[in-house]
Design a protein around this nucleic acid. Sequence first.
DNA 1: AAGATTTCGAGACATAACGCCTCGAATTAT
DNA 2: ATAATTCGAGGCGTTATGTCTCGAAATCTT
Lengths: 174, 174
Amino acid sequence: MRAIHRAAIEVLKEGGYGGLTIEKIASRAGVGRQTIYRWWPSKADVVLDAMNASAEENVVADDLAGFVRATYTDRGAARMLSGLMAEAQLDPDFAKRFRAAFLDRRREILIEIAAKELPPGVDLEVVADMVFGPLWYLMLTRPELLDVSYAENVLAAISGIEKLPKAESPRSPD
Amino acid sequence: MRAIHRAAIEVLKEGGYGGLTIEKIASRAGVGRQTIYRWWPSKADVVLDAMNASAEENVVADDLAGFVRATYTDRGAARMLSGLMAEAQLDPDFAKRFRAAFLDRRREILIEIAAKELPPGVDLEVVADMVFGPLWYLMLTRPELLDVSYAENVLAAISGIEKLPKAESPRSPD
DNA sequence: AAGATTTCGAGACATAACGCCTCGAATTAT
DNA sequence: ATAATTCGAGGCGTTATGTCTCGAAATCTT
């Protein structure tokens, strides 16, 4: 199954997410299609698993600046993630799995880190949106702009939020 | 062709972008498939045209707060846009058209408005990313949270940026 | 108004990918 | 060594795509 992960990532790099098919992953991995269908409900889930598997190998920064910089400079992840986000728009079932297995996880990690560093009273949900919002916007529309200096812009904007009072109107629950 | 626009939007509302096909648009519009292929290179371009056509009818706000509030509360547009953004990830050619015909336009409008209101020295590119970033992030992952109070959060964050010096490192050109 | 030209709805056709099913070989367990 | 399971390979029906063709309707010409 590690071979299937690697095959998926290779095919993705070569033809982009749009050119990814189960057949190509299978033949690249030297595996029958049925073997893939046996373990994953869709090709997007294969890529999602591959993402998370490689993410577990890399230790993640545990301070806010490090987290933001690392997140904004992971080009390999960006290519996979833009495809997964696209798939999530087309397949509502996959969207749930994507949120649970990736989006929500990352958000929780960020909020946990931010809670330790930022003064009390800062709305951490807003901070999360200000970090992940521009990140996704860049990944999806101008991924070539993703770099450290962009991360610094985001960190600067957050330090601007710190100085603002928490919004008075509560946000609707998830 | 107006009938085709309407048909596309109707089918989109009923089955989501994932359930949208040329065949469904054609039969709903009482039109042959070939007629659609004659005028648009893909179904995404049909939806993009429909979006822009309906946008031209609505007059857009010409102050920053109005623009942000209007943008964050247009639920009908959100459904179309998430599908178009997905398509742009899968089809690089469409991605170019989507940027030119929508993303870049909206960005230019925002920057023009912001330039009049915000003090000189504010990095308008960063402002644009702080407006559109969270907007897209919400549209794509939790569209049910899009509302006026969210727009106010974004406006508050921007007023935080105003008070910061412009980033010293210039951004790479588009 | 009548005939020529174009536009268009409808449907046939080939292609590509999906998801399912089957079979024979290889692997694993007993 | 033999039985049981797993797996690669490939066939099959389905669905959507994009191209092509035809006959009818609409438009233009004179």
